[in-house]
Design a protein around this nucleic acid. Structure first.
Lengths: 250, 250
DNA sequence: ACAAAGGAGGCAACAACATGCAAAAACAGG
DNA sequence: CCTGTTTTTGCATGTTGTTGCCTCCTTTGT
């Protein structure tokens, strides 16, 4: 039995029975109590359950869908996504394009979120299928299979009639002076348009992508409103700060 | 076995079983675990699956009833799909909308197929991610989560400029005299448009859908070019045959 | 306060993983 | 048809993740 599977089961049990005892789980799931405790600790850290002595309690009335919250990403990326979530408010119109980090981001969105989400990435759309109060608008185009996003003039044209509160941009490469760049022309033009029609732009960037660049420039870094990163070097922060970008570190 | 083929299979298995273990896949697909891991990594990067330690998880699970329908009459649907494949030739422009039967259909398409496939269903687009010689064009719209298709005026408008050789229509209900009908208005208008711009129309219909109808009529049955069914009653066949529809039974 | 149960942290065993490399297969161009 | 190149694969290497056990500490209930 997979670890994730086991943790999912714990949450499910907790949804039915509202309290859970570690020693009991150990028998039911056929692992040691130590493992159960570690599971409970992890789930508590994610905010999915509330740990108490001898077991755990259900966190609240809303039934959490666990499958949307699996921990697959590296600690760094998880932290980034969690930070980014804070900038999302109900009733927003949010534009999201592709990328693994963005996918993790939508997986972290609360199921109770009420919003309109516009995306050109089929995997992102599917990941939002369980969010009942999110209206998903899919942008058409030619499927670019490398990164699973729809691109093309149709995509750009469809964006003409749209205004978004927040654009969550997937970033391949970023350099404080050169700007944000991608390896393909099609992606660049769509992203550029998305920046143009959005009030604020947010990007989650792991530190390995900082200070790198590719051949197609999307926009200067200064177009970013929020830069979520796990970088700790203060000079990098200053570099972006000086461009009026809100930098969020861990 | 080709790499693409293998990855395709992994996604399929994951659709059925919602979890997958690397060592298990290694046996089932008869390649080393290293290769499986590389596959999982690639698929994860594309956002098609979610990697976890020791295996991978399905990205969904998609909408509850959508995934439930997956199992129902699966055998029958696969059989129909196999029959339908014969009508697909290289270089065709094929229009496909949603539905589990249609999903089975694209899963059966040979990886070597060279074609343009236009769809308003994100799961269908994703299922085609490994077909290197298929250009996938995704139609935008508002995601209708019940059946996982994009609908709306944008969708209909995008179809204006398109002509297709073959439309593979997902059918909820069909009656020889009443025609083809669906439960929602949005679906009806998109399907109607799709019929209008396609040279030929093919539908796979399991026998339980024959002689049933819903409230929104798409078109008379006579619009169908091919009707693939597992029905064995000759009088039903005659009924459709008399409308110049090519009926294919098992 | 004391005994019993629960929990934290360290450790070892084992499984799963990433990476580099070389052989084999598929491919492209002449 | 042959040759050089790229892709794919399996293996060997060292690394990381997961689990159970152990010890020592903390909480709980009486």
């Amino acid at each position: 039995m997979l670890k994730q599977e086991r943790q999912q089961k714990i949450v499910e049990i907790l949804n039915d029975e509202q309290k859970v005892i570690a020693s009991d789980l150990s028998l039911r799931l056929d692992v040691s109590e130590d493992t159960i405790r570690r599971d409970l600790k992890e789930l508590d850290n994610k905010g999915l359950i509330r740990r108490v002595h001898s077991g755990a309690l259900r966190i609240g009335p809303p039934v959490e869908d666990f499958s949307k919250r699996q921990d697959v990403m590296k600690e760094a990326k998880q932290a980034l996504a969690r930070k980014a979530i804070e900038f999302v408010k109900d009733k927003m119109v949010i534009l999201i394009d592709g990328g693994t980090t963005n996918l993790q981001f939508v997986n972290q969105l609360p199921l109770t979120l009420k919003a309109t989400i516009i995306t050109n990435s089929p995997p992102i759309a599917i990941a939002l299928a369980n969010h009942n109060d999110v209206e998903v608008i899919m942008l058409g185009g030619t499927l670019f299979k490398e990164s699973m996003v729809n691109l093309g003039i149709e995509t750009v044209e469809a964006l003409e009639n749209i205004r978004a509160d927040l654009y969550v941009m997937g970033v391949h490469k970023i350099d404080a002076t050169i700007g944000i760049s991608v390896p393909s022309l099609g992606e660049a033009s769509v992203k550029r348009k998305m920046v143009a029609i959005s009030n604020e732009v947010l990007s989650m960037v792991t530190s390995d992508k900082l200070n790198t660049f590719s051949n197609h420039i999307v926009s200067p870094a200064s177009q970013l409103t929020y830069l979520i990163t796990d970088n700790i070097q203060p000079e990098v922060t200053r570099l972006y700060d000086s461009q009026q970008i809100t930098v969020v570190n861990d």
